[in-house]
């Protein structure tokens, strides 16, 4: 059981969350080329170690989060809201 520190709700069991995917993908414009979209949708690194990934606090605040997690040890180094505006607001507050 991973425990994820939600920036809004505090540390919770990972069973409250749902895994999204690779948080480093920059999705191209909607009208970008097939090659660009192909890479964004289908090409994934299989990282051994720290990776940024999105999780949604589904059974909590429903916020999408960017979690920096070690795929070997499940160590979580950082968690921030995926919404850039909210992440900045939280940062400014602290």
């Amino acid at each position: 059981m991973i425990r994820i520190p939600c920036p809004f709700c505090g540390e919770r069991d990972h069973s409250e969350f749902s895994y999204g995917g690779d948080a480093t993908i920059e999705y191209p414009a909607l009208d970008a080329s097939i090659a660009n979209w192909h890479d964004a949708v289908f090409q994934r690194q299989n990282i051994c170690g720290m990776q940024f990934e999105t999780w949604q606090h589904l059974n909590g605040c429903r916020m999408w989060l960017v979690v920096e997690r070690d795929t070997m040890s499940h160590e979580i180094r950082s968690v921030r809201p995926a919404h850039t505006g909210m992440a900045k607001a939280l940062e400014d507050e602290t």
Binding site: S18, Y27, Q56, R62, A82, H83
Partner: peptide
Amino acid sequence: MVWLEELLQVRWP
């Protein structure tokens, strides 16, 4: 619902 939330929070903030 999850998809719309993802689009709004992650892709189109």
